[in-house]
């Protein structure tokens, strides 16, 4: 499968060589991140890839609109702004990943804490109504009949 994909990419690249050269040059930061990142955490690479593509896409469309040839690719690549945009967007993707996960992490923590507080509040309300013996009894598994006949014992 892996080899099949490589062959396919190779074949498509041979057919669309100017586009492949542009994309190949522009996608390097993403490839670097994929190579460096842990195998389990591919999300950062995917996010960088998405942003990297956003940075490559205007130059790719320029290539397609001006003529899909290698000299045009070389002209585009000669422009430092091209590299700045492509790699800048990749960098932005890296930053976006860090920012978003930080925000989402804290939101999740906040939600858990809210939930815990709500449970604690409920428990407090139960204790205020039924006393702390309900806390001790919660750890025991008694049947209701046993509680009913032994109703005196937990004064």
């Amino acid at each position: 499968m892996y080899y099949f994909v490589l062959i396919m990419i190779g074949s498509v690249s041979a057919v669309f060589l100017p586009s492949a050269v542009l994309i190949g040059c522009g996608i390097l930061p993403t490839i670097a991140v994929f190579m460096v990142a842990e195998k389990q955490n591919t999300a950062q690479g995917i996010v960088m890839f998405n942003f990297n593509i956003i940075g490559i896409s205007p130059h790719l469309f320029t290539l397609w609109s001006q003529g899909h040839t290698l000299p045009n690719v070389i002209n585009i690549l000669h422009d430092p702004a091209t590299w700045t945009v492509m790699y800048g967007s990749a960098f932005l993707g890296w930053g976006f990943y860090i920012f978003m996960t930080f925000i989402i992490h804290n939101v999740i923590v906040l939600l858990i804490e809210n939930k815990m507080n709500s449970i604690k509040k409920q428990q407090k309300s139960i204790i205020s109504k039924w006393g702390s013996e309900v806390k001790a009894a919660a750890t025991q598994k008694n049947d209701p009949q046993a509680v009913a006949t032994n109703g005196f014992s937990n004064g």
């Binding site: 998405n50 956003i54 205007p58 989402i104």
Partner: peptide, 24 residues
Amino acid sequence: KHPLENTITVLTSALIMFLALMFT
């Protein structure tokens, strides 16, 4: 990390990419 952190970030970035490509 919570699994949601990556999922949401990836999905958001994909959406942004899609919109940016459409716009460009």
